[in-house]
């Protein structure tokens, strides 16, 4: 398993498309929001540049987590999983390696957007808060990794990518990562506040105000994680 994990990490590092998609795109959006269009999200007394920075970092990391499943779908489609199935590597070793390399792969998305906030938008935060942001955003996107795996073992190849992009954008918008939920009608806002992307973002938004994650966001996030993980496990068992 160790040797396969090494290979997966190598691949994650080498994937320029993924790197651009999952770090470059959020940064561009962030700069567009804050520098060009002045649509920076109005937080609750928080610097809009910082608030949007957290939104976009969460958005990028969420994509990285989801697309763990994209790679699985691709490799189920192109037969690499078939080849691995005739090696001593057990199927759970493969998923684990994918999850670990995916988890490592989301860190750049977070760090690059935060760096853009600090360097280009003059966001100033205590050192501890920066570290907390990285950790909290990282934890917040865990359910999406599970969701990605569920997708990866349900759909194959290109279909999976398209479906995942739809889900990715849908959940991002619904979760108030693009535009704040405060701009939404009341009913939609309630729905939004229970959606996984919102809860992932709220961990970071709270940290900006120096708040520790509350019980409700953590519980909601844990529920989503449990739900997606069960879904992933079910799909995985059917596929393997």
């Amino acid at each position: 398993m160790g040797s396969y994990l090494r290979l997966e990490l190598l691949r994650a590092l080498r994937n320029p498309v993924g790197l651009v998609m999952l770090t470059g795109f959020p940064v561009l959006l962030y700069l567009l929001w804050t520098k060009v269009l002045d649509l920076a999200q109005a937080g609750r007394g928080v610097d809009p540049a910082a608030y949007t920075m957290v939104s976009m970092a969460t958005y990028g990391a969420m994509g990285g987590a989801l697309f763990v499943g994209g790679a699985i779908a691709l490799e189920r489609g192109n037969g690499w999983l078939r080849q691995l199935a005739v090696t001593p590597l057990p199927a759970h070793g493969y998923v684990t390696a994918k999850l670990v390399s995916g988890a490592a792969g989301v860190v750049p998305s977070i760090v690059v957007v935060l760096a853009a906030g600090a360097l280009l938008n003059g966001v100033r935060l205590p050192l501890g808060t920066w570290a907390a942001l990285v950790a909290l955003i990282w934890v917040g996107v865990l359910p999406f990794a599970a969701l990605g795996v569920a997708f990866g073992y349900t759909l194959k190849g290109q279909v999976a990518s398209v479906a995942m992009i739809a889900v990715y954008f849908g959940l991002s918008v619904l979760g108030g990562l693009w535009l704040p939920v405060t701009a939404m009608p009341a009913a939609m806002r309630t729905l939004a506040e229970y959606s996984p992307a919102y809860q992932a973002g709220s961990l970071g938004w709270g940290a900006l105000e120096g708040r520790l994650p509350g019980g409700v966001p953590l519980a909601v996030l844990a529920l989503w994680t449990l739900l997606f993980a069960s879904l992933a496990l079910w799909r995985y068992r059917r596929a393997v």
Binding site: L7, E75, G79, W80, Q83, V86
Partner: peptide, 14 residues
Amino acid sequence: VGALLQEAGLPDDV
């Protein structure tokens, strides 16, 4: 056991 399969894909990026 070592197996060579007909439709085994390989990762392109390594």
